[in-house]
């Protein structure tokens, strides 16, 4: 299991390949990548992601441990960035590996649902008109109830 919180960009292809190649007991690898989405007007200059150093790592570890307890995973990877990113840039990725695909798919969804509202990151959108914090969605909180 690897959990990384970093300012620097990551190489999705290289990370995915390294993760997949390191597996010997798995038959399935699922990856999810979150990218900076432009706003409806297409005027987003930058997305700034703030986090709570220390708690972030603990929260991600807890979420990852819960996923490993619940599904039969051979491995998992979480990379989440903070700092400034432009539209299209990758914010984060998760990868899960399991013997059969169902566990990898479900665990990846679980990780994403919990990452959204239980990992201490906050997004701020900067446009020419100013900056605005992204509000949490009720649907993100509701998503947890299915687990």
């Amino acid at each position: 299991m690897r959990i990384q919180v970093q300012d620097a960009a990551f190489d999705l292809g290289a990370e995915t390949e390294r993760f997949a190649k390191a597996q010997d007991a798995a038959g399935a690898v699922v990856t999810f990548t979150g990218i900076v989405r432009n706003n409806a007007d297409g005027t987003l200059k930058c997305m700034r992601i703030e986090h709570y150093p220390g708690m972030t790592e603990k929260a991600l570890q807890k979420i990852a441990d819960q996923a490993q307890e619940r599904w039969d995973l051979t491995d998992l990877l979480i990379i989440h960035r903070h700092g400034d990113m432009v539209p299209g840039e990758m914010i984060m990725m998760v990868a899960t590996a399991s013997k059969h695909r169902l566990h990898a798919f479900e665990a990846a969804e679980y990780l994403m649902d919990y990452l959204k509202s239980r990992a201490p990151f906050w997004k701020k959108e900067m446009t020419a008109d100013g900056a605005e914090w992204v509000a949490a969605k009720d649907s993100d909180e509701d998503a947890l109830s299915r687990w």
């Binding site: 979150g34 709570y52 220390g54 708690m55 603990k58 929260a59 989440h80 914010i91 984060m92 994403m112 990452l115 959204k116 509202s117 239980r118 990992a119 201490p120 990151f121 906050w122 997004k123 914090w133 992204v134 509000a135 949490a136 993100d140 909180e141």
Partner: peptide
């Protein structure tokens, strides 16, 4: 102390309290 809690919780033994809006990770 870097664990999510609630407003009724005791501060006994706590060294760090953090306040923030609902999180928007992912």
């Amino acid at each position: 102390d870097q664990e999510l809690s609630d407003f009724d919780a005791s501060l006994n033994g706590v060294t760090e309290v953090a306040f923030f809006p609902p999180m928007t990770g992912g």
